[in-house]
Write a protein that binds this DNA or RNA. Structure first.
Lengths: 225, 225
DNA sequence: GGAATACCGATTGGATCCAAAAATCTCGAG
DNA sequence: CTCGAGATTTTTGGATCCAATCGGTATTCC
């Protein structure tokens, strides 16, 4: 990590906007008014505009010339496609992690997954954070920074991601999530690369399917009012 | 394709700058002066700045606050890591293509690869274009737009990519390239998904290794003068 | 009464202005 | 002659200005 790279205001601005979209404070499909964002974040429109370009490149928002930016409304088929790719990459990460992970690493994974356990006392957002940490840890153990980066970018391409879903969705999904993580840990411990990949792939695909369904339900609801 | 989405100037500007970097007109490590770019492209600094933010997000350039943007100089280890990811994704595309490709599709691939053949008469850049087309065709046959997009983004993350290398490098590599493509086509024709994936993966990894070596030689040369 | 059109408010987009920061140059001291 | 402090120049960054465009509304014509 850099010791603080003379932080660029526009990057911070982009991060702030992204956070507001990811948290749901700015809802899916919402218009992003430059003047409004500028006032809220206490800067002029210039850094806002540049930040929006960054988010546009990331795919989180769509910008129509002379009409402004809106938070992208992903189509369910896009979610499914994307999670097929994500499953492949996370599977790859998991396979690589098998030969690189240490005993301490396995302990870290178990600790992270404990916070995902349905019974765990979780303040707002902690389940999301815990779920993220579990996956992020594995990306780290894979020992390929680019791989971690690509997965991260993919995850930030949708206004609502799996982590946010795990938190708000029902206990059933949370329990499934927990047990799938356990199976992944088991495979990593055994050292079975093939199984580790397969388990992670299935895990991500199932999560993606939940997310796609969520978007389907959402668009149906929005239609009715 | 859209009938021309009211083309945004900043997107065109970003594309123009990217093209100049990819072609080598703007060399690796070069400073990108906003005023100079503005004059060259005939616009003011405002769209330039937004375009640079887009390229920054893509990873093609690096922006240091108050010091400006430079064309990124990839480290060889980064190239290797990236091509491991690319190999995985292209392998996935190839595997998926097996069950989706048609006879016409195979014909297209053969035609594209004919232009890669060492003996082929190639005007400047045509080998690059042909190599790109071969891969792009397969991405299309994979039937997953997100997958194609991610691979495209990865490919545009380096100022010098494999396609550019294939063209300028020696005949030996070009011939290897051609024969590896042939083996991939054969696997696709046979319908052997496993082999198709493996061949493509090996092909991309070998290309990535060439690219990494190229960057190694380059940095060594630059040091000496 | 309905549809086409012209106007108006709101918002984005490009250009310009000025301040802040960094690199370079100059001058002086050791 | 070298090193360092200060001034100068260059370049980026944020704010602001004005034109271009879009959506909506009202008006007019058929």
């Amino acid at each position: 990590m850099e010791p603080t790279p003379a932080s660029a205001l526009v990057d911070d601005t982009a991060a702030a906007i992204r956070a507001r979209i990811m948290s749901g404070e700015i809802p899916i499909g919402a218009q992003l008014r430059q003047a409004e964002l500028a006032k809220t974040l206490g800067v002029s429109r210039t850094p806002i505009r540049e930040a929006l370009r960054q988010l546009q490149t990331g795919g989180l928002i769509e910008v129509v010339p002379h009409r402004g930016a809106v938070v992208r409304v992903p189509a369910p088929w896009d979610v499914r496609e994307t999670y097929e790719v994500r499953a492949e990459l996370e599977g790859m990460a998991c396979e690589r992690a098998v030969s690189r992970i240490t005993g301490d690493g396995l302990a870290e994974l178990r600790r992270a997954n404990d916070a995902v356990r349905p019974g765990a006392i979780l303040s707002d957002g902690s389940s999301t954070a815990a779920n993220d940490e579990f996956h992020t840890l594995i990306h780290g153990f894979a020992g390929n920074e680019r791989l971690a980066k690509v997965i991260k970018e993919i995850n930030e391409a949708f206004p609502r991601n799996v982590s946010a879903l795990v938190l708000q969705d029902n206990a059933r999904h949370r329990e499934d999530n927990f047990h799938e993580h356990e199976r992944i840990i088991a495979a990593l411990e055994t050292g079975d690369a093939e199984t580790a990949r397969r388990e992670m792939q299935a895990h991500v695909l199932s999560a993606g399917e939940q997310l796609a369904r969520w978007y389907e339900r959402r668009s149906a609801t929005v239609f009715k009012g």
